[in-house]
Simulated scan of single mutants.
Amino acid sequence: MTSGIKNRTRQAILDAAIELLADNPGCSLGDIAAAAQVGRTTLHRYFGERAELLAAVASEGGERLVRAATLADLDRGTGAEALLRLCREYFDLGSLLSLMFSGQGGECWESQDEADLGRVVARGHADGSIDAALPADWVLSTLWSQLYAAWSYLGERPDESRHHVLDLLTRTLSNAFRPS
């Protein structure tokens, strides 16, 4: 039971760090401890210094990205369908994406193998679901930039529903990748 409590406490600290660092990369460890509802000394028992916490955030981010790719089932359907499923999974990562886009999240996104995504785009080229004139790196850059745009849009419009913004995002990407 003790390890379960330790795991929950550690996860609460990581979740709070991701949320706060996404909005304010300079937030204090005290702010993160308060958001995780633990004392600062408890935070320091788990992460002796800020660098350890940031490394753990990057590792957690990488795990979440891999989990999202697994849930997207990239080997199923057309290349375009797989990328849209991945986009939906990534959209749910919210603050982690904001942290990635700000450059403050370490190198967690490198855990997602770009070669895997390149193969999905190549499959889309071959099956005709992605315009063959669009290079894979262009398609992936477009996917990332539109995820950023969707989260920025959502952040600037607190009354907007996540569901509606996700619909806008997938509609935009579907049309952007579709062959002429």
Score class of each variant (00 low, 15 high):
residue 4 G to C: 02
residue 5 I to M: 01
residue 5 I to D: 01
residue 9 T to G: 00
residue 12 A to Q: 11
residue 14 L to Y: 12
residue 15 D to K: 15
residue 18 I to M: 05
residue 18 I to P: 05
residue 19 E to Q: 10
residue 20 L to C: 15
residue 22 A to S: 13
residue 23 D to F: 09
residue 24 N to H: 14
residue 28 S to F: 13
residue 31 D to G: 15
residue 34 A to L: 14
residue 38 V to T: 00
residue 40 R to G: 03
residue 41 T to V: 00
residue 45 R to D: 03
residue 46 Y to P: 02
residue 47 F to A: 01
residue 47 F to T: 01
residue 63 E to S: 14
residue 63 E to H: 09
residue 64 R to Y: 10
residue 65 L to P: 01
residue 75 D to Y: 07
residue 77 G to A: 05
residue 77 G to Y: 13
residue 81 E to K: 09
residue 81 E to G: 13
residue 82 A to T: 08
residue 84 L to Q: 06
residue 87 C to E: 08
residue 88 R to E: 12
residue 98 S to R: 15
residue 100 M to C: 04
residue 100 M to H: 10
residue 107 E to D: 12
residue 108 C to F: 14
residue 109 W to Y: 10
residue 110 E to N: 07
residue 111 S to G: 02
residue 114 E to M: 13
residue 118 G to R: 15
residue 125 H to I: 06
residue 126 A to E: 11
residue 132 A to L: 08
residue 133 A to T: 15
residue 136 A to E: 12
residue 139 V to K: 05
residue 139 V to W: 08
residue 140 L to A: 10
residue 140 L to Y: 08
residue 141 S to N: 09
residue 141 S to K: 09
residue 143 L to N: 06
residue 144 W to K: 10
residue 146 Q to V: 02
residue 147 L to E: 05
residue 148 Y to L: 10
residue 148 Y to E: 07
residue 149 A to V: 05
residue 150 A to N: 04
residue 151 W to M: 03
residue 155 G to H: 04
residue 155 G to L: 03
residue 156 E to A: 13
residue 156 E to R: 14
residue 159 D to V: 02
residue 161 S to K: 07
residue 163 H to S: 08
residue 165 V to Y: 05
residue 165 V to I: 13
residue 169 L to W: 04
residue 173 L to S: 04
residue 173 L to C: 06
residue 173 L to H: 06
residue 176 A to K: 08
residue 177 F to C: 05
residue 178 R to T: 10
residue 178 R to N: 04
residue 178 R to I: 03
residue 179 P to Y: 09
residue 180 S to L: 12
